[in-house]
Design a protein around this nucleic acid. Structure first.
Length: 437
RNA sequence: CGGAGCGUAGCGCAGCCUGGUAGCGCAUCUGCUUUGGGAGCAGAGGGCCGCAAGUUCGAAUCUUGCCGCUCCGACCA
């Protein structure tokens, strides 16, 4: 992409409404624009990151054997009356009336809809397990939306739902999601720690929150310092194998949210206990028959009896992750995107737009990066070097290929790694080699 | 939902106390000079001073109501 033709309205100054660093940087980098409290438009740069995160989530869900579908944002109230949540959900649910005076709502989550889909089609134990997910906008009319996309009212969430014949099978589905989540967050360059969590209004007895540690996190969390050293990268899961040993191994390392942490009963000594702030980026629940019983989602067993299916639900805050990743990865100059979610793979910075030789060298580099599939952003604006450096540091692409007349005369370019600030002067080919890896 | 604060140009702000026809920096546009870490000079455009009512000869400024946004706390992907 040529920056001169792109829509990337960066700001030099921070709008006053933004308090936390991710919100400030997202506004300054021109990633989002607030429409009203807790509701955002995603501008091209932000949208690209959102889509990258979404894609990683999708790939890992698919790998775990979940099937993607898409449910609507607007739902009929009747389904929620069946489950009993129409009244329970309270003011957080945005209620709408259509022209025929029918009660509708903007979905805050999708247990009811998915259960309705499941029960309509699935009647036999032979047709479970099922693991279905979608990535769709949700609306929760938060009392106090804040922190930009970290706590918006409208947000993009991946929510998966499992349907199993008995507890053992549903635990296996739970384990799949547990390990899939670790892989998912690891791929985004995040350390997300699964913590024992309260099941809250969704119900059930087995639940973990996946939390990334950040100073601006909303909740207090506690974990064994082992979590800091543990490497989850190597987890190449065979989802059809028995997952319990690995999950047990991990859940035995202490980690709990504030509500679940009892200092008196904590097995970890004070010296080994990390107390920190955390951001919840995922939450998984095994809640048994709460919805299937209420909504009669039953299957027939081999002995011809009818049993409600055991269910679980599994959420990842996709839009929240955009902010979460920035919270976890930034410096004074701006965002430092992990390679996997960066909106562009590399920047080409032309230090002297209009200088024939420099322009030619930049075009050459740009074409080669494009051909290599790097998806480069070429800063071909007629701006001064300082402004270009500042903007590129702000938007935090992993690599900056800096090309100016001085280097061109010597046959070298400068390659800067955003994360470390390390710079090298080398030939274009050598630089391309490093970027392409 | 309890407590607090703020609405003046795209962004950051001053002016308000003590009423007199709206200002600064950045950004934008034009021209010239510049060009390796947010340039200089000269000129220009851009405002129902959140909305409404009131007080007053006169309201950004005082009063009241409303709306919006933000922050702290209790609750949530």
């Amino acid at each position: 992409m040529r920056l001169s033709r792109y829509f990337m309205p960066t700001l030099k100054e921070t709008p006053s409404e933004a308090q936390i660093v991710s919100h400030r940087l997202m506004l300054r980098a021109g990633m989002v624009r607030q429409a009203t409290a807790g509701i955002y438009s995603w501008l091209p740069l932000g949208f690209k990151v959102l889509k990258k995160i979404e894609q990683i989530v999708r790939e890992e869900q698919d790998r775990a054997g979940a099937h993607e579908l898409l449910m609507p944002t607007i739902q009929p109230a009747d389904l929620w009356r069946e489950s009993g949540r129409y009244d329970d959900y309270g003011k957080e649910m945005l209620r709408i009336t259509d022209r025929h005076d029918r009660d509708m709502l903007f979905g805050p989550t999708n247990e009811e809809l998915i259960t309705d889909i499941f029960r309509f089609y699935v009647k036999s134990y032979k047709d479970v397990p099922q693991l279905l997910y979608h990535i769709q906008w949700k609306f929760r009319d938060e009392v106090r939306p804040r922190f930009g996309v970290m706590r918006g009212r409208e947000f993009l969430m991946k929510d998966a739902y499992s349907f199993d014949i008995d507890y053992a099978a549903s635990k296996h589905s739970y384990n799949k999601m547990f390990l899939a989540y670790l892989r998912t967050f690891e791929r985004m360059g995040l350390k997300a720690i699964p913590m024992r969590a309260d099941t809250g209004p969704i119900g059930g007895d087995l639940s973990h929150e996946f939390i990334i540690l950040a100073e601006t996190g909303e909740s207090q969390v506690f974990c064994d310092k082992q979590w800091m050293e543990i490497d989850l990268a190597g987890d190449n899961v065979d989802y059809d194998s028995d997952l319990d040993p690995r999950v047990t191994e991990l859940t035995n390392i202490y980690a709990a949210t504030d509500e679940m942490h009892d200092p008196a009963a904590c097995p970890v000594g004070e010296a080994d206990l990390i107390t920190a702030r955390g951001i919840e980026v995922g939450h998984i629940f095994n809640f048994g028959t709460k919805y299937s019983a209420a909504m009669k989602a039953e299957v027939q067993t081999p002995d011809s009896s009818q049993v409600p299916v055991m269910m679980g639900s599994y959420g990842i805050g996709v839009s929240r992750l955009v902010g979460g990743i920035i919270e976890a990865s930034h410096d004074d100059a701006g965002i430092v995107w992990p390679d996997q979610v960066a909106p562009f793979g590399a920047a080409v910075i032309n230090l002297r737009q209009g200088d024939d030789k420099t322009d030619a060298a930049c075009e050459d580099a740009y074409a080669k990066l494009k051909a290599a599939g790097v998806d480069p952003l070429y800063d071909d604006r007629n701006e001064r070097a300082g402004g270009k450096f500042a903007d590129m540091d702000l938007i935090g692409l992993p690599w900056q290929l800096i090309i100016g007349p001085r280097g061109v005369a010597n046959g070298v370019v400068e390659l800067k790694r955003r994360a470390t600030g390390e710079r090298q002067e080398l030939s274009l080919d050598a630089a391309l080699q490093q970027i392409i890896g």
